[in-house]
């Protein structure tokens, strides 16, 4: 019997829970409230008590803690095994995971082992009158949203795009905590991590002001950084520039990167493919500079400047520095 439960895999880095996990908990709680479902957060490893408490305060009615030292660090082999065992005995109606590197690494394999349908990068989740989850997924760079359902298999699975849903915090919320110690002594991790390098980069979904540079910026990207410094903005980049390695991919904006929610976004030298514009849809004011008057980017902008970004950026810098 499938249980009327929405499960959320909680991703964490030590005692810090990923925002996307909290966002999914928030959205799940909203769906659950109007449909008679409950929300379960799945936490793996041996976190501090505060983590489990927070999962409840952010929307879970219950936490299942899969308690094992080996689960403190993500491992595809171990996570798929313990989640498969738990899900195939508990039979929740749905399982949601953040569309992060780990979440996407996990979801495909887990869905295949569970023999269930998987949707990716959901930007919308609703429950229809039959109790079926309908996942809204951007396709073709975000010009179309496909509504996808999984009718015949369970759990209904989807990864969820970070920065899409709002967190809901309730300090006084109470919930149940269930501890499960998974049997993984015989499970081998076939992929051995021998080195890890983290460059602490900014989470652009939280950025108030963002300047995004594209191909039209010209050769000197340092001017974009300079302009950002002067206006206290964060810097984002289009996919082509990330592909060239000019700016780290962590700062990429668009379908496969961040969706900005900035109050102001300055877009420099970007023609405005659909892959890109889906990432600035939720910004307050959008100001764009591009050399081509017919650029699609101007259809997505409040203030439009037709001009060569490589000329305009240094001129704006001069103005802001008060040199002229």
């Amino acid at each position: 019997m499938i249980k009327k439960e929405l499960w959320v895999v909680v991703e964490r880095d030590g005692s810090e829970i990923e925002d996307v996990s909290l966002e999914i908990l928030g959205k799940s709680a909203v769906i659950a409230k109007s449909s008679g479902y409950s929300v379960t957060g799945i936490v793996l490893g041996t976190p501090e008590d505060g983590v489990v408490r927070d999962v409840i305060r952010y929307g879970a009615d219950r936490v299942i803690l899969l308690k094992h030292e080996r689960l403190n660090q993500y491992s595809n082999d171990l996570y798929v095994k313990v989640l498969y065992d738990l899900i195939s005995s508990e039979l929740p109606a749905a399982l949601l995971v953040g569309a992060t590197y780990y979440g996407r690494d996990l979801a495909g394999r887990l869905a295949a082992r569970l023999r269930t349908g998987l949707t990716a990068n959901a930007i919308n989740i609703k429950m229809d009158e039959k109790g079926l989850l309908v996942f809204g997924v951007p396709a073709y760079g975000g010009k179309i949203m496909a509504e996808i359902v999984c009718e015949t298999a369970r759990p209904q699975m989807s990864t969820v795009r970070p920065g899409t849903f709002s967190k809901v915090f309730d300090q006084g919320k109470k919930g149940k905590i269930v501890e499960v110690v998974p049997e993984i002594s015989k499970v081998q991790d076939r992929v051995k991590v021998i080195d890890r390098k983290i460059n602490k980069s900014k989470d652009l979904t939280k950025s108030e002001k963002t300047i995004v540079g594209g191909n039209g910026v010209g050769g000197d990207f340092s001017l974009v950084w300079k302009l950002a410094e002067l206006t206290h903005s964060d810097v984002g980049v289009t996919r082509p520039l990330a592909d060239k390695g000019i700016v780290p991919r962590e700062l990429q904006v668009g379908t496969t990167g961040y969706s900005l929610k900035s109050k102001v976004a300055l877009i420099l030298g970007v023609s405005g493919s659909e892959h890109f514009t889906s990432g600035i849809r939720d910004c307050g004011t959008v100001i764009s500079v591009d050399i081509d008057k017919g650029s699609e980017i101007f259809n997505h902008s409040d203030y439009c400047v037709v001009g060569d970004a490589s000329e305009i950026i240094p001129a704006v810098i001069k103005k802001l520095e008060g040199k002229i």
């Binding site: 998987l118 101007f298 902008s301 409040d302 400047v305």
Partner: peptide, 25 residues
């Protein structure tokens, strides 16, 4: 297949002001 596309919705971009700023550099 285990998933089904129920429908396709065109995402209409939010209305922007589209004010063009003219002049020289």
């Amino acid at each position: 297949s285990l998933t089904l596309v129920k429908g396709l919705i065109e995402i209409t971009p939010s209305k922007r002001k589209r004010v063009f700023i003219d002049g020289n550099v």
